[in-house]
Every structure is written in C-alpha cells, then in structure tokens.
Amino acid sequence: MGKYKVCVYAICKNEEKFADRWMDSMSEADQVVVLDTGSEDGTVEKLRTRGAEVTVESISPWRFDTARNRSLELVPEDTDICVCTDLDEVLRPGWRAALERAWVPGAGQASYRYTWSFNADGSEGVVFWYEKIHARQGYRWVHPVHEVLKWVGEGSPGPMVSAEGVQLDHHPDPVKSRGQYLPLLELSVREEPGDDRNVHYLGREYMYRGRWDDCIRTLKGHLAMPTAVWRDERAASMRYIARSCWEKGDTGQARDWYLRAITEAPHLREPYMDLARMLYALEEWEGVLYFTACALAVTVRPRSYICEAEAWGSLPHDLRAMAYYYLGNYPQALEEAGKAAALEPENQRLRENQRWLERRVLEDSEGQNAQFSKNDLEEIDKDNK
C-alpha cells in the first residue's frame, strides 16, 4: 500500500483481447473500475475474473465525455489519485512508485510520457506528454470526442506535477473504426463554436478524409479565432491547409502555406519536413537540402502531441541522401544514407540504399564509370515520392 490511494478507471467495449495485458499493467493500483458500454464478447467476464469492478451501462447517444464522466463516478470519493486509461494502453512497470514520488498533497493533475504509436520495427513513433491522471474532486470531462479534463471545482485547481518515470504505451486495434469521430467533432464545434482546439481537430479530420475544401475553410477559420494563439497548433493548421492545396494541385498556395507554417513555428521540425517532401516531389534538390538541414537543426523534441515520428526518424537523412545523389554528390549521399540506416536499422530499403551507394562511390574512386539502370534508381527512390 502506498501513501496515496490510487484508482484506475476506464471505459471499454468488446476489448477482451486486451483485458489480460491491461489488467497486468494496472495491477499496481489499489483499485480498478471499468464502465463497459455494451460488450458482446467476453470482456466483462475477463475483467471481473482479473479483479476489476465492472459496471455495464449503455451510453446513448454516444459521447466520449459522457462515458468518461460516468466511469469517473465509479471511482470512490476517498481516492487520492485517479488514473484514466483505455484498454489498448499499457503502463510500464514501476509507474505507481514514480507517480507517488511526483505527486504532492493538493496536486491537481500529473503529466507523463505517452507513446501514441510505434513504428513497424517496434521503435517509438509519436510521443508526447499526457495529462489524464488527476485528483478525484473538481474535475469533469468535456467535449463529445477528443475529450479533455476541465476544472469545475471551487477556486483554482491544484498544480500540475511532472511524473517522470511514468510511461504509458498505446497499442491500438488496427481494425477499429474511427468513423464516429467526424460527426462527433462536428457536434462539438456546434456546441462550442468558440473552442479553437476542436475547430482545429475538425479541420484536421476533414484532411484525413480527403475533404480538402472543407479542411481549408475550417482551418482558415481556426487561424482567425482570437483564442487560437498556440503557435504549434497554428502551424499545424497551416501545414494541413498546405497539404490540401497540394492535393488540389495548387503548388504555389501549398508552398506559401508551408512557409507561413515555418515562420509561425520555426522551433518545430514538422513544417520544414513537410515543405522538404513537397520539394522532393518537385525535384527541387537544393531546396530539399536546405529545409532538411533546417529541420535537423531543431534538436529539442517537443512534449506536445504535434510531434510526428517521421520528422525525428530516418526521413530527413533519407531525403538528403537522395537529393545529394541527384545532384551528383555521391560521397555525401552515402554519408546521409548511412545516417538514415543507422536510425532505422531494420528498414531493408535504407540498407539497400546504403549498399548501392557504397558500390557507386567505390567504382567512382577506382575511376570506373558505373552504370546503374533506371530500375535500380527507381527502386531506392520509390518510397519518398
């Protein structure tokens, strides 16, 4: 028993395959409570067998905030720390001790490291810091989707503590649909049209669905909102507008919006890399080298959710290798290819690129005029266009 009473709470539906793994990782808590919203598999039985307290209740019409708040109501009033997770997430061992070291009497929330996605080789993809651990009293969930905690208690909330050492990993079901997100986001914006965060999310969702004009219209609206002042998110809106313009065939507008994103948030890698990828497709090799160099000059990875794995992986060096190749600088291309392969050693294409360029540089050094087929070149280049 620790010095604080810790309760994990969650919502679920048809997640039997995750139940054992989730319960294993939550076992350091004093109590685990779950709201099941209508499972038709063995989720409820499995969780109860493992010791969770499960309440079965339908939420109609479906909203994530309503479900979260109902699950929070299941947490005992005398709980000190509430830990909200989903069944497709895993807390790494030792999280309880790390959380208790960070927590202080009167604290409101805890931020902790969250790996939202993993690459094919098992390495981390998107990583940011999450804030779904909180005190029992004074908080409610708001918004139909992309729900967040809101302080509704008297006075001001307690301080946010940084729970170094708490690591939550997300291993989602790849076949699970996100089809409900768009109508819920549209509902969220109708309910609170002045919430800039949800307007941004709605525009992004339109982009995901290829609704380019809706994306552009919505995100221009986001940028015009007086409350939309967070530069990282503003830059993301500009990048999504740029991508939509590019998809519509308007290269000039796409370039302009990418440059605006860079100006808005020069401390982020993502705007530089987005523009570099567009210039790569346009075969503007000097531009590729310039903007990838700008991206690599950003060495501090942000803790926010606007942090994309590709920008912090092999991609900058991969693009640079190809740009140097097309400019005829084979030794520099080889150096960059080696850096790309080192960052993603399980990627066969990157290893082949490196070996291919090693042969090219060797034959050049021996005074031979190496001849490589067009098919060879297309093979090492195909993933970047």
Rank of each mutant, 00 (worst) to 15 (best):
A340I: 03
L168P: 09
P172K: 08
S27R: 04
D214P: 11
W356N: 12
Y290E: 15
N119K: 15
T79F: 07
V161M: 13
D65F: 12
R96F: 08
T218K: 01
Y112C: 04
V56G: 02
M278G: 09
R197T: 11
A295M: 15
G155D: 02
M1E: 13
A224Q: 09
Y272T: 13
T79R: 01
D256I: 05
E100G: 15
I216F: 10
C84P: 06
E15W: 00
S244M: 07
I81H: 08
I133D: 11
Y326I: 00
E191A: 10
V152R: 13
D256N: 10
M278F: 11
P172W: 03
P61W: 04
P183G: 01
A228H: 13
N329S: 10
S244W: 06
C84H: 14
E286D: 08
P302A: 03
A370R: 09
N375D: 14
N69V: 06
D256L: 05
F118C: 06
W141P: 15
R204N: 11
R140L: 15
E247P: 09
Y130E: 15
V90A: 14
L182P: 00
Y130H: 15
S156P: 12
A323N: 04
N119E: 14
W356R: 09
G106F: 04
S373V: 11
E205Y: 06
G287C: 05
H143P: 02
P271I: 08
A281N: 11
A98C: 14
P183A: 01
L327R: 11
A224Y: 03
A342K: 03
R320E: 08
N369D: 14
S60V: 15
R70E: 13
D169T: 11
Y272R: 12
S237E: 03
P93R: 01
A242K: 08
V32K: 00
E147Y: 09
A110W: 02
L219Q: 04
L187W: 04
N198Q: 07
G194W: 12
M238H: 12
C215A: 02
Q167K: 15
P266E: 13
W95E: 02
E344W: 04
L202D: 06
S156T: 13
T299K: 15
I216T: 07
I262D: 12
D86S: 14
I262T: 07
L343H: 05
V32C: 01
P174V: 08
Y206F: 09
E16N: 02
E336R: 07
A281C: 03
D318Y: 07
R349N: 10
E264G: 13
D250Q: 03
E358C: 08
D30K: 00
M225H: 10
E284H: 05
L268S: 07
V288Y: 02
A29P: 00
A265I: 12
L35H: 00
R301D: 07
C12T: 08
D36C: 00
